[in-house]
Design a protein around this nucleic acid. Structure first.
Length: 437
RNA sequence: GGAGAGAUGGCUGAGUGGUCGAAAGCGCUCCCCUGCUAAGGGAGUAAGGGUGCUUUAAGCCCUUCGAGGGUUCGAAUCCCUCUCUCUCCGCCA
């Protein structure tokens, strides 16, 4: 949520900033509602004050056993006042709810360094790493490689469930598990993240806290009708909600959390996009980094966080580039987002494999997540950040495509070998634990 | 699934209709005392919002005792619904 004081003070300025995203804020509606709220609240509080004073007087009169007449008059007065109060309260509740709902749909303010632009093409490339493989043959895509290895089965998944799911078998199932374990261990060991295990079903409040609700319910899978729970679209939701309603002490920040979870997305509105293969699935594995910092440190933390995600690609020897997202491409809750894009030989282009965002205090307000410098100071909002470190499914397919040879054999980077019993390469029928299996 | 108990401030925990935003203790902050430390003494210590201000004041006021409704002039306290926690039984990975 945007700072409510800033919004009240300068609604036009906020609207102008949000316009960078292509978001149109109804300033007139807001200003008039806010003015009405203010006057209504003053009146309501005044009524309540009189009610409180009157009730206290009743108590006094009863205690003093004063004349019944005075008591009767007082009670009559209060009954009348109460009727007025009920009406005012109802009007105020309605108005506040409307304003609250309005504020929950406003996206975050953008960082000043976020480039203008509404299209993906306006994103800014900051740097590249690694060598894009120069194949002397026509590289196969991961679907074909997966078939040759007999480890990737889309039709089996569509029988079990439907489109946009996959079944992995044998070495590829193990490879996915190895990648997950490697990423978790890497972030814990190299950067001191605390590994977290979380629920994969979350309630409405958690999703509102991180910003998926109320605007993006159609992107989610809801579990119902008996319970109002949702399958998580990312570990960001449960992990960031660890900070909800919490006041951190300055000494315990920053928090660095890493979690592996499956992610479930309805992919509504992506019809026709990435229909083939593992790029866009309803279910995928992801290792997520989440940080909670004090406000002054989130920018540096953001840079470091991207570095942590990048280091995984370096370890896996996968060529990638770092993009600074433009205004129109930056997510609802984010002030600034870097995407990591990995090279996919079959598509001859870079595709997103990680998204690292600084939310500043936007989520913290929704989550009521605060910190306190020391015992004497007032609590203030924390800053929250997160990034994929990395999307495991896409990592797996990037690995297959980038490290294939003409025969369809795929070599494995050394960092994974301890996770795979020393296997160095995969090919059709090879790389299995038991040759006859 | 069955039976029962509970949810109060950073923590523990009193409080069953009228100065209760809330006793007491712990913790924390400041001060005093004491070569240092320890012990001791004193004071303070919830959050959010409105008004004020036109600048981040004082003061005044409102709200909040798990959440939401209700009864009442008045609710932490009584009633209803929900959520969560705990204990016992059953079942179960």
């Amino acid at each position: 949520m945007i700072d409510i004081k800033l919004l009240r003070q300068d609604p036009g300025g906020v609207a102008a900033q949000l316009a960078r995203r292509g978001f149109r804020m109804d300033v007139d509606w807001y200003v008039s509602q806010e003015a009405e709220r203010r006057s209504l609240q003053t009146r309501l509080e005044d009524l309540r004050k009189h009610r409180n004073e009157g009730s206290r007087r009743v108590g006094e009169l009863k205690a003093l056993e004063s004349p019944a007449e005075e008591l009767r008059v007082q009670l009559e007065k209060l009954t009348h006042l109460d009727r007025e109060l009920v009406d005012a309260e109802q009007a105020f509740r309605k108005l506040s709810a409307g304003l609250e709902a309005f504020c929950l749909t406003l996206p975050n303010l953008l960082d000043a360094t976020v480039p203008e632009g509404m299209e993906e093409g306006a994103n800014q490339e900051l740097r590249r790493w690694g060598h894009v493989p120069d194949f002397a043959f026509k590289p196969r895509d991961h679907v074909e490689l997966g078939e040759m290895i007999q480890g990737m089965d889309f039709s089996a998944a569509s029988v079990i469930t439907g489109a946009r799911f996959v079944v992995l078998r044998g070495i590829l199932a193990r490879l996915q598990r190895a990648l997950t374990a490697f990423m978790l261990d890497w972030h814990v060991r190299e950067y001191g993240y605390e590994e977290i295990y979380v629920p994969h079903l979350v309630n409405r409040q958690s999703l509102t806290g991180t910003g998926q609700l109320p605007k993006f319910e159609s992107d989610l899978f809801r579990v119902g009708p008996d319970v109002d729970w949702f399958l998580i679209p990312t570990a960001e939701v449960p992990v960031t909600n660890l900070a909800r309603d919490h006041v951190f002490s300055g000494s315990e920040l920053p928090k660095q959390w890493v979690a592996h979870t499956p992610c479930y997305r309805s992919e509504a509105g992506s019809y026709g996009k990435d229909l083939k293969g593992m790029i866009r699935q309803h279910q995928f594995e992801k290792v997520e980094l989440v940080q909670i910092t004090i406000p002054g440190e989130s920018s540096q933390a953001h840079e470091r966080l991207v570095g942590h995600a990048e280091s995984v690609l370096v370890q896996l020897e996968l060529p990638y580039r770092v993009m600074l997202l433009c205004a129109g491409d930056t997510g609802f809750a984010s002030a600034k987002t870097y995407d990591l894009e990995v090279w996919l030989p079959s598509q001859k282009r870079y595709r997103e494999i990680s998204s690292c965002s600084n939310f500043r205090d936007f989520q913290a307000r929704r989550l009521n997540a605060r910190w306190r410098q020391d015992a004497k100071s007032k609590p203030d909002w924390v800053h929250t950040l997160n990034g994929s470190g990395l999307a495991v499914g896409r990592t797996l397919l990037a690995l297959l495509e980038n490290r294939q040879d003409e025969s369809g054999k795929v070599s494995l980077p050394s960092c994974l070998q301890s996770y795979l019993g020393g296997i160095r390469e995969i090919r059709g029928g090879v790389g299995r634990e038991h040759p006859n299996g």
